[in-house]
């Protein structure tokens, strides 16, 4: 399978990365090189093989359903580019 420039622009939109026409053109070539490389996986017979979901066989750890952390609003917003009264500020979303 290979991608064309309009697919690259659509994927960039999904990935929320702004791309210029030049970027998209260059990326099309690079992505096709990588997709060409991974193509060989189709040679492998995977009939009856389960996809890997966990590399180490282990049961999911669980803890008691209790509040163990919190009250750290200052810490949470400390690194944000724009905040007001412990809220994150973003451009207007709803008119």
């Amino acid at each position: 399978m290979s991608v064309d420039i309009s697919t690259v622009k659509r994927v960039a939109r999904l990935a929320r990365i702004a791309v210029s026409d030049d970027d998209a053109e260059r990326m099309t070539g690079e992505l096709n090189t990588i997709l060409g490389f991974v193509e060989q996986l189709n040679e492998v017979d995977v009939t009856g093989v389960e996809p890997m979901t966990s590399v180490t066989p282990m049961a999911m750890k669980k803890r008691e359903d209790l509040v163990t952390d919190g009250d750290k609003a200052d810490d949470i917003v400390a690194n944000a580019p724009a905040t007001e009264e412990n809220f994150f500020l973003v451009p207007k979303v709803v008119e």
Binding site: M1, V8, V11, L14, L41, V44, E50, P51, M52
Partner: peptide, 27 residues
């Protein structure tokens, strides 16, 4: 480049062909 490849192989219609196949090969 890697975010783009990852977004593409997980996108609708390509998941089985790429990601699921790769996880089976990983097994």
């Amino acid at each position: 480049r890697r975010i783009m490849i990852g977004t593409y192989v997980l996108s609708a219609g390509y998941y089985d062909a790429y990601y699921l196949q790769a996880q089976k090969v990983r097994t």
